[in-house]
Design a binder for these strands. Sequence first.
DNA 1: GGGATTTAATAGTCCGACAATAAGGTCGGC
DNA 2: GCCGACCTTATTGTCGGACTATTAAATCCC
Lengths: 273, 273
Amino acid sequence: MPPADDTSAAGGDGDDLDAPEIAIEDPGSAAAVDDPVRPPRGTGRRLHGAIAHKLGVAIVSGHYAPGDRLPGEVAYSGELDVSRGAYREAVQVLTAKGLVESRTKAGTRVLPRNRWNLLDPEVLAWAFTGDPDIGFIRGLFELRAIVEPAAAALAAERRDRADLKILKDALAAMTRHSLATEAGRTADRDFHSGILAATKNDALIVLSSSIGAAVNWTTVFKQRARALPRNPIPDHRRVYEAIAAGDAAAASMAMRVLVELALEDISRMAGEG
Amino acid sequence: MPPADDTSAAGGDGDDLDAPEIAIEDPGSAAAVDDPVRPPRGTGRRLHGAIAHKLGVAIVSGHYAPGDRLPGEVAYSGELDVSRGAYREAVQVLTAKGLVESRTKAGTRVLPRNRWNLLDPEVLAWAFTGDPDIGFIRGLFELRAIVEPAAAALAAERRDRADLKILKDALAAMTRHSLATEAGRTADRDFHSGILAATKNDALIVLSSSIGAAVNWTTVFKQRARALPRNPIPDHRRVYEAIAAGDAAAASMAMRVLVELALEDISRMAGEG
DNA sequence: GGGATTTAATAGTCCGACAATAAGGTCGGC
DNA sequence: GCCGACCTTATTGTCGGACTATTAAATCCC
């Protein structure tokens, strides 16, 4: 019997794209000697987590290219002034996410991109630190365009009362705060996560964080373009109503227009910028 | 400039669902005391990897339920007769995959299922050790049914000569060996991975391993049912020809019938068995 | 020149100690 | 008697150093 564990109340899925409070100095140029990877007092994140973050960003951002060897354990842990154990734990994290591979005597090398777990929430967060690759964002939107309409259809068939409440609340929150506020964007993510959750399909639910990230970038791009063309909330409402009505076809259709408009924006941005 | 890194020649994506050579004794019942987690000589897999595998299987298979606290570092590492460091590295791997969370004084607890990275190749492999949840497999097939037709359409538009060669070779291999052989099943996975690769979309490509696992289960289920109803290779050929012809609509359609037939089989099995 | 052998560099493991954290109990105030 | 501040203590987090295992690369022998 699962004890009260709920650190993850409903809808709290896609929100782990947090920005760590540790300053990540670009380790590229000269004299990155005493960079404060070490949060001396009152940190929050654990040390090996900080190292993993730093390394992860360095890899995903291309500072270390696939095939590159990153400095040996002793060298790097010494340079960062952390113990070798902490450094190794960080590397295990990267290994678990498919970013690197360690072999005795050969060192640890960055794996080719197709081995990376790009949909892992943390990897995604690393990819979005700094300015991410526009091509990748477009790919994420393509994934949205594929998955979300189908998910909406399934949700229309399988949703229960609790699902509907979550969607309704999220919609209300989106309306109350606009999408210009952080609270509004969180509600937006909750809405889309809620639809995936309503499919009762674990394999779809795990895509929540990935799709949530893409959802976030919708508004980011729109704001960057200073073009907040149309109020997207009516579109969301149509999706909700179709799901509430149990109309799978309508839900799929409504979601498709919603996502395709976003995809258009991204493609236009990619073409221009 | 990326040095020659190609440890991952084309089409080698979905094949990491390997079975480790370490005997995993079900840690369930009594007296799992001296179980040989420790491969004394001539192993292959690293020690912390073996521990992570053992723990991962135990968690995914439900031996530890979400919310459960697993034994403390000192206790468990002592029982397994490994150092605390090695055990910790294993736990970091599980943490990176979202299976557990460690908090000081509170111990490390199994996270709720919706935090698990179920599409991670390793987690998938763990989930398929022993008899996996039929519901999850069905979910995986639903994901296939959603993603693959769309991916086939994109592939038809974007494939280049190299992509076609990979698909053609895989198709030939499937024909030569049947799907009853391991080589044939590998070719089957390569075919589906090749289509995803042809989309040139990283967010889709990472689904290769997940979908590859589902593809494998198609044949497993069919064989278990002793019903090898129809030769699926002509279906694959139709998909290939549509992609080669650049006909997105036809590719999507052909893939849809292919997957839907498989989905039917699974659903029937789930209903019966 | 090619295969067997040695070397050395590097990741992997172990140990033992101490630090930091916070869960859960305890005590005191109201 | 209830609630908040305090303390205890169990547990993870970090450290340093030593030793082992593995294997890429150089070296040597035939």
